[in-house]
Design a protein around this nucleic acid. Structure first.
Length: 462
RNA sequence: UGGAGUGUAGCUCAGUCGGCAGAGCAAGUGGCUGUUAACCACUGGGUCGGGGGUUCGAAUCCCUCCACUCCAGCCA
């Protein structure tokens, strides 16, 4: 079946063109001697208005009974539409009905709540909103790869399953093939994981960073883009149990290079959306967030603010604002503090850098002041933390001492330490939560809407 | 996981002081019409989230459980 895409027909078609399209009926309106059938194939927000005349052989039998959700194909000729709302319409010469959606089809020609749509994950991409998310997500994925490819970063597939028990980024999902009801026991009565598939405890990855460092210290520039798993009991509009993270890692990069890369990356992606997904963004701007286009244009053109953690604390202490959480040097910035900085103080994305070492991970490079590390977070209005990154500790002795100081086991990190022993080099990287980016570019409120099949506590149906 | 809120027709919601279960949309039937979430009329459609209690009587008050949403924490 040689069908055209509706996006192409609407963009390039002219009156008189013979075309065939296929898709799903959004709505039908009957006139005296013909029917208006709006068909959408997911290629763009717009549907194509098909004129089905009563002279069609299956007019009475099928067409006037078409329901929302039915699957059809139409062959005919494009014509200038005399009605308002569309430039072109398709005058059908033949009209095939593949299947008629019964009356209990869950999607109707009206707005549904996103909560309801989550319950019908198998059908929700047939809505304008979720289809627009899917197209934009595809476009953003492609742009992320293009950005790094253009800059000499190699795409590295880091493992999904790992056995390092202490990456320090939250609760992990255990991977095992041991029988849950009667696992092998060791002499202390505990589960004997040496009998497990990998010979030790294994989990789904919480970050590809440590492995990305291996490739950064061989290819110089590498990045990962893959699924990431956190078994936290999180129930918020910004967290998922399974999400996609982009993690570039570059040798001979210091924190300033890292921050510059992060800023360039975010702007590149936003600009790409503004350039290549105008129709979908216009849809979100109209239906979801009327300030979206203005916000994205501002981000694309703004210079991100940079402020040290210490200066940020000073700003927050002087702020004429009653925070629920006390501001104090040495404690982590709360969401309310981050939003105040991004939304009120600077009114644009802000990069906070050089955090106290006690609130950051062991692998971050220590400053000479003995108190802070070369870490940075990119905070954006409305979303909060979009990116977290750092320059990595590349000095063998310093890293080893830090591991000991935190009571971590050196033998768990033997290969990570080896990287500092053999040809160590300054390097830095960051992690960008892909779904957080999607929140930014769609204007949507809940992260469960911007991933095709969201997973959160109690939910993994589709 | 803590705090707050919500749960009524397929969907979105109203339901007053505890007194016969409602509207719009969707579906079905008929009508009208180059329509635009088309329109008009009629028809069918209910475990009021589940369980327990108070009461002559509970969608409504009380207890409990469940689900979802928002805020917060964990973070990306």
């Amino acid at each position: 079946m040689n069908t055209g895409r509706i996006s192409t027909v609407l963009r390039n078609g002219k009156a008189g063109d013979a075309v065939t399209i296929a898709g799903w009926v959004r709505t039908r309106r009957d006139a005296k001697t013909f029917s208006f059938v709006e068909v959408n194939d997911g290629s763009c927000v717009a549907s194509l208005q098909v004129i089905a005349d009563q002279s069609l052989p299956n007019y009475q039998a099928d067409i006037v009974k078409l329901t929302t959700g039915s699957a059809v194909a139409c062959r005919g000729v494009l014509a200038v539409s005399p009605g308002k709302g569309q430039a072109l319409e398709l005058r059908a010469a033949s009209f095939t009905v593949f299947s008629m959606a019964p009356s209990d089809f869950p999607l109707q020609k009206k707005r549904h709540s996103f909560e309801y749509l989550r319950e019908i994950g198998h059908l929700r991409p047939r809505t304008n909103s979720i289809a627009a998310v899917a197209r934009l997500r595809n476009s953003m994925s492609f742009a992320a790869h293009t950005f790094f490819q253009e800059r000499g970063f190699a795409y590295v597939h880091t493992p999904i399953i790992g056995t390092s028990d202490c990456e320090g980024a939250g609760e992990m999902f255990r991977v095992t093939t041991l029988p849950p009801d009667n696992p092998p026991r060791d002499e202390n009565g505990g589960v004997d994981f040496t009998k497990d598939f990998f010979g030790k405890k294994a989990s789904l990855t919480v970050s590809g960073q440590l492995e990305a460092e291996i490739y950064a210290l061989s290819l110089s520039r590498a990045y990962t883009f893959g699924p990431t798993f956190r078994a936290e009991d999180s129930n918020t509009p910004r967290h998922l149990a399974e999400f996609w993270m982009i993690e570039p890692e570059a040798a001979f990069f210091d924190l300033d290079d890292d921050m510059a890369l992060a800023e360039e990356f975010v702007k590149y992606l936003v600009r790409h959306a503004l350039d290549k997904n105008q129709d979908d963004l216009a849809f979100f701007n109209e239906r979801i967030d009327t300030s979206l286009l203005a916000t994205l244009s501002a981000i694309a053109e703004s210079e991100f603010a940079r402020v040290s953690y210490t200066d940020a604390i000073t700003i927050l202490e002087k702020a004429n604002e009653s925070f629920d959480f006390k501001v104090a040097w040495g404690s982590d910035l709360q969401t309310e503090h981050e939003r105040y900085l991004a939304e009120t103080t600077f009114g644009k994305p802000v990069i906070v850098h050089d955090y106290p070492k006690q609130i950051k991970a062991f692998y971050m490079k220590q400053n000479d002041d003995g108190k802070t590390v070369r870490a940075m977070d990119v905070l954006v209005p409305r979303i909060g933390e979009l990116i977290g990154g750092s320059e990595r500790e590349d000095r063998f002795d310093v890293l080893r001492a830090r591991i000991a100081e935190l009571g971590l086991s050196e033998k768990d990190y033997w290969w990570y330490l080896d990287l500092r022993k053999y040809g160590s080099a300054p390097h830095a990287g960051f992690g960008l939560g892909f779904e957080r980016l999607m929140l930014l570019v769609t204007g949507l409120q809940n992260i469960r809407e911007v991933i095709p099949f969201p997973r959160w506590p109690g939910n993994a149906e589709f």
